[in-house]
Write a protein that binds this DNA or RNA. Structure first.
Length: 578
RNA sequence: CGGGGUGUAGCGCAGUUGGUAGCGUGCUUGGUUCGGGACCAAGAGGCCCCGGGUUCGAAUCCCGGCACUCCGACCA
């Protein structure tokens, strides 16, 4: 491609809307353009890079035995009503009506559609397993789109669904996809980590997220260098510490004026925060989210943080159905007092106690009375929980739940997730098969997603410097940039054109910068665009030489055009061989 | 959904006490340049987000929308 002919518009200045590197650079290189908040179009360079990521995904899915199909983004409401998610999905689902008033959604995901398609053909165990995938546009009306392609409202996702006759089959399919995902992200040049993830109400060890490690990531990861444990902060288990077994002292109410926070109470009473109990108050809503149907008080040790996901799982409620409480309203029903709520004396609400507190002796807790706390509070004797569960967040420095060594934390961008669905969709949607004995069983499903557009952003996020993008060879829009400095110098032109032709003939993707621009402009753009190989035709041309340089760094080599062509072809072919 | 911020030329921004708009960059033309975003000169380019109101007069003040954005909540 000749740069003079390209639909290529780079920006000198940083668009004010962009904050992070991938967003800034994708906009500045002209790879993407914004249409609306969280809605982007792909320009030629962006489209080419996107295609490369898709092709890697496609190759690895095919190699893993999945078959590609393509389903509509537009989905009838009936399917979602059947699975029960039409109501449950919430405001993130983009709902539309046709001219006759029939309801549809723009699919945020495709479990229902795939389940429906497969049930039309699958009757027998002989037809299983099946694994189907698509690379397709998804729609989620995010509350807050941000970071360009990382959290957008329209995005491209590879999603696939496995269908097996039993749990053993699912385990095999799951492992197969897990391995395929590792290959995909390896080939994309990402520094990533598979981590255990929350699998919500379905439970079990049924989900992993693939996180591209980087500071701007929205995912918090907890990991252990010692034993290899890695999980999202939502998922990470907390192995309760052994508490000192002291004798239970008599319960006592003390005056603690104006001490609303844990810090204030503990300072006032001169006790460490790990000897205090923190209360968190919530309202529970009905399915329509219109009315408060009850209250929840969650208690954790004063120095811990609540893990909302664990609390929701312990309660078995929908995440939308719980919210921080209006303390005034709650006080009338339960006796809770903001800043002074404790488990003793609380009534008419569900009490969830963190498992760690069961063996914690002589704790400080609110007295459910303004300006008062209780001391020497003990579980069993003074209060009990309706639910006792691990509801706290594992944080950096806490002991690893597997080996006990202090864990570390990191941030990442979730680029993929693998998930065991079991029979969550096959049962309500009647996707069944008959076994050898004519017995009917629900199909056992798994679902697997890769955020393709998000992966592209994550690659840029990990591969750039102050001057621009540094594309990995596997996904770069073009392999080589030939910078022709003097477009009116016959020697330079002939040399550049000859290399351009030879590289094209060898199947190398190359841009010849033949624009009528000063060399400085071309150098800046070459760095910004970030193709891996740079060949500069300039002042050394008279001596029959060009400059050969890799965008990622290293020395400039002054060599003949033939050598430069040879080196470029070798490097590109090395990448193609893997 | 709560709390901030911003909407002025393609992009980045200024615009004072209210008097019908400017800078940088990019674009066009001519000239001089030509290895890290050149210089000089001449141009083109505006529903000052939208709708009301106050005023002789509104980019500017007031009210109401909308959009974008940041922090948080939320995120199969």
């Amino acid at each position: 491609m000749r740069a003079s002919q390209m639909y290529l518009y780079t920006l000198r200045e940083v668009p004010s809307e962009a904050e992070i590197a991938s967003h800034i650079l994708l906009l500045r290189t002209g790879a993407i353009r914004k249409l609306a908040s969280g809605v982007y179009g792909f320009m030629p360079l962006g489209q080419r890079a996107l295609r490369k990521v898709e092709d890697i995904v496609r190759q690895e899915m095919d190699a893993a035995g999945a078959q590609e199909i393509h389903m509509s983004a537009l989905q009838p409401a009936e399917l979602w009503q059947e699975s029960g998610r039409w109501a449950a999905y919430g405001p993130e689902m983009w709902r539309v009506k046709d001219r006759n008033g029939r309801e549809f959604c723009l699919g945020p995901t495709h479990e229902e559609v795939f389940t429906d398609i497969v049930r039309q053909n699958i009757d027998s165990y002989r037809q299983l397993p099946v694994n189907l995938y698509q690379i397709q546009t998804k729609y989620r009306d995010e509350a807050r789109p941000r970071f360009g392609l990382i959290r957008s409202r329209e995005f491209i996702m590879k999603d696939n669904y496995s269908f097996d006759k039993d749990e053993e089959g699912l385990d095999i399919s799951y492992k197969n996809m897990y391995d395929a995902y590792s290959k995909v992200f390896d080939r994309c040049g990402l520094n990533y980590r598979p981590v255990e993830a929350d699998s919500g109400a379905i439970g079990g060890s049924g989900s992993h997220e693939f996180c591209a490690l980087c500071e701007v990531g929205e995912e918090e990861i907890i990991y252990c260098d010692e034993c290899g444990m890695a999980a999202t902060d939502e998922r990470a288990e907390f192995k309760d510490a052994v508490m000192p077994q002291e004798a239970e002292l008599p319960l006592e109410k003390v005056h603690t004026p104006g001490t609303k926070t844990i810090e204030e109470v503990c300072d006032f009473l001169k006790v460490p925060q790990d000897k205090s109990i923190k209360a968190l108050l919530f309202e529970l809503y009905n399915d329509e989210l219109t009315d408060v149907i009850g209250y929840v008080a969650a208690f954790i040790r004063g120095d811990r943080q609540l893990n909302m996901t664990k609390l929701v799982n312990a309660l078995g409620c929908h995440e939308y159905a719980i919210a921080f409480a209006n303390e005034g309203a709650m006080h009338g029903v339960t006796g809770a007092v903001g800043g002074f709520t404790g488990p003793v004396g609380l009534h008419d609400c569900k009490i969830v106690v963190d498992s760690e507190l069961v063996n914690a002796k002589n704790m400080v807790a609110g007295a459910c009375e303004e300006d008062h706390h209780m001391i020497n509070v003990n579980y069993g004797r003074d209060y009990k929980g309706d639910i006792v569960a691990d509801i706290k967040l594992l944080q950096a420095g806490d002991p690893c739940p597997v080996c006990g060594k202090p864990v570390k934390n990191a941030r990442g961008i979730e680029v993929g997730q693998v998930f065991k669905l079991h029979t969550k969709y096959s049962e309500p949607m009647h996707l069944t098969f008959k076994d050898e004995n004519q017995q009917e069983h629900p199909v056992v499903m798994g679902c697997y997603g890769i955020g393709v557009t998000r992966t592209l952003a994550a690659i840029v996020e990990q591969h750039h410097d102050d001057n621009g993008i540094i594309w990995p060879m596997s996904v770069t829009p073009y392999h080589v940039m030939i910078t022709l400095c003097g477009i009116k110098d016959d020697v330079q032109v002939a040399m550049a054109e000859d290399m351009y032709k030879k590289l094209l003939d060898a199947g190398v993707e190359v841009v010849l910068d033949d624009r009528d621009e000063r060399p400085g402009v071309k150098f800046k753009d070459a760095d910004l665009l970030g193709f891996p190989i740079r060949i500069t035709v300039g002042k050394k041309a008279a001596e029959g030489q060009v400059e050969y340089k890799l965008r990622r760094g290293g020395d400039v080599e002054v060599i003949t055009p033939a050598e430069a062509v040879e080196k470029a072809i070798a490097l590109v072919n090395a990448e193609r061989r893997g």
